[in-house]
Structures are given as C-alpha cells and as structure tokens.
Write a protein that binds this DNA or RNA. Structure first.
Lengths: 143, 143
DNA sequence: CTGTGTGCAAACACTTTGCAGGTGT
DNA sequence: ACACCTGCAAAGTGTTTGCACACAG
C-alpha cells in the first residue's frame, strides 16, 4: 500500500517526513530504530523522527520491537498484529540475529502462560537471540 | 550466603564495592539497574558499578533482566538459573509491574519454541508486563 | 609485588522538552 | 485560519573509555 494511503487510513496528515519514514519501513523487513532512520533519511530532523515514531506507535501503524540492544525499534504492523478475533495486538515472537544485527518479526505466536494467582498481564514480549536463516545459509555456501 | 562467600566461590577478589553490590541484590527481590545501585550505594563510583555488574554478569553471578524501560537490569542467579541437567542458563520468564515499576523473576520456564528451518537460537528473553501480585492485592484491601 | 579494581574526567549514544515558525486540510 | 507538524537548541539519562592510583592476594 502507498504511504499516502496508509496515512489517510489512519487519519494522519500527509507530510514529507511521514511518507519518507513509511517508505523506509516498507523497504526493510526488519525493525528500525530512530538512529537507523536518522542515518538513512538525511534532511529530516532527529526530533521529528522520534515524534513521528511515537505518533505511529500511538495510532497503531507500527509496534515496538524489543531486543537487548537498548535502542527502541519498531516494525510496521501487519497481519501478524491481528488475532483471530480481529483485535489489534502484538503477540508474535521477535528474532534478534547476533550476526547481521537485525531484529525481525517471526510468524509464531507467543504461547499462552498461566501466571501465578494475583498477577495480571497486559503485554507480552518474547524475543529469541541467535542466527537468522539468512546468516545461517550464507555461512554454509552451496558446495 | 554471605557476599564474601559468593565472591570466593566465583574466584573473584573480595572488595568493598562488590560486597556492597551483592548485599543490595540480596536485600531486594527484584531486578536492579546501575542507576538504582548508584542511588542506593553512595560512595561507590558510577563507573565501578557498571564494571562490577559486567564482571558479575560475565562470571554468572547475576543475569540480565530485560524489560521495556531500556535500562539494563540484573538479578542474582538462583535455582531458577539451573536447568534439570545442572547446566547454567536463563530460561525463566520475567515480570514487569507497571505500577510498582519492579521487574522480577517468575518461577515459570519459557516454553519451547519450534523455530522455522534455518534459525539457530542461543538466548530466550520473555517478559510479561502487567500488575504484580503485591500491587494487585493492595488495590483490593481486605474487607 | 603484580595484576586487578577503583575513581575521576570526559566522551558517547539515545531520548525528551520548549519554543518559534511552517504547512496540511 | 487553525491546529498540527517540523526544526533547532538544549538538556536529561544511561553507558563506555582512558588513565593514574590503590589495594587484594
């Protein structure tokens, strides 16, 4: 979908910065951080990027992706973000590759957990560190 | 166990800073961050704390606890950190309370996940956000 | 005595806030 | 026209590095 259309769907004003940010998300299948955006989108202010990401997150255009780099990352919401009852939520597992340093969304749901009596859950975050398919494949070149 | 004994067990030099840090960990059942240690341990340099935490983590005295605050947290390793085959690893779930802002270790193992072909896992991080037992109990006082 | 631990200064990286001016609708 | 978006400056917070001195073993 065209960035302009996405913005329209979410009733967000169509601005240069937002289009550029969405395009960048669409060009990459992995989660993006503000520093990454800043490097790859010269001409757009650092603060604007932070605010754009925040707005997108609040409106449900993107969702937080946590890994252990302690830099906020986000990924475009997709089918993965909708459960069977068409309720927008984020219960899939993320994968952080220690080789290419990319964190991606896996098409695997977070398994249900029985919390001890008295606990109330609102959000689940599950990520796995390791070597992703791409890096794994390229380290064993075809013979 | 006495902090001195712990240090001895891990073949670490017994210093004032390390004892103080271990004592603080023992006094709290939740994960501690460097900023927290800094506030609660006046007289010990900020950098020393970072380095102490790093050393402890490398030696397996403490383990990383991730939540979405983007501040590194650590917890003392305990029985939870040893799997059935007495192999030191960290596969339990953490819980981040949005009310008291404490992140704790749960006595629940991370369920096994079947990764897609080609992926290789080395670490699992799973945390749940919500309201912990303590906060939940205190918001519904006994009648 | 020797190597490791500590403290201080400084730099680095990521994120947030305030305000003035610009722009989409 | 008006509200919202953007850019700039500055500050806040968490973390790392370099170097000289101190101290545990």
């Amino acid at each position: 979908m065209k960035p302009e259309q996405i913005l329209k769907n979410f009733q967000l004003k169509i601005t240069n910065a937002r289009i550029k940010v969405l395009e960048l998300f669409q060009r990459h299948q992995f989660a993006l951080s503000q520093p990454f955006l800043e490097k790859n989108l010269e001409g757009i202010d650092r603060v604007t990027l932070y605010r754009t990401l925040n707005t997108f997150k609040d409106m449900g255009v993107i969702h937080k992706v946590l890994d252990d780099t302690y830099t906020l990352k986000y990924a475009l919401c997709s089918d993965l973000c909708y459960s069977k009852n068409s309720h927008h939520e984020h219960k899939h597992i993320h994968f952080q590759c220690v080789q290419c340093n990319k964190t991606t969304c896996l098409d695997i749901n977070i398994p249900a957990i029985n919390l001890p009596e008295g606990y109330l859950a609102t959000e689940y975050h599950f990520f796995i560190k390791g070597i992703c398919k791409n890096c794994n494949d390229s380290s064993y070149p075809n013979t």
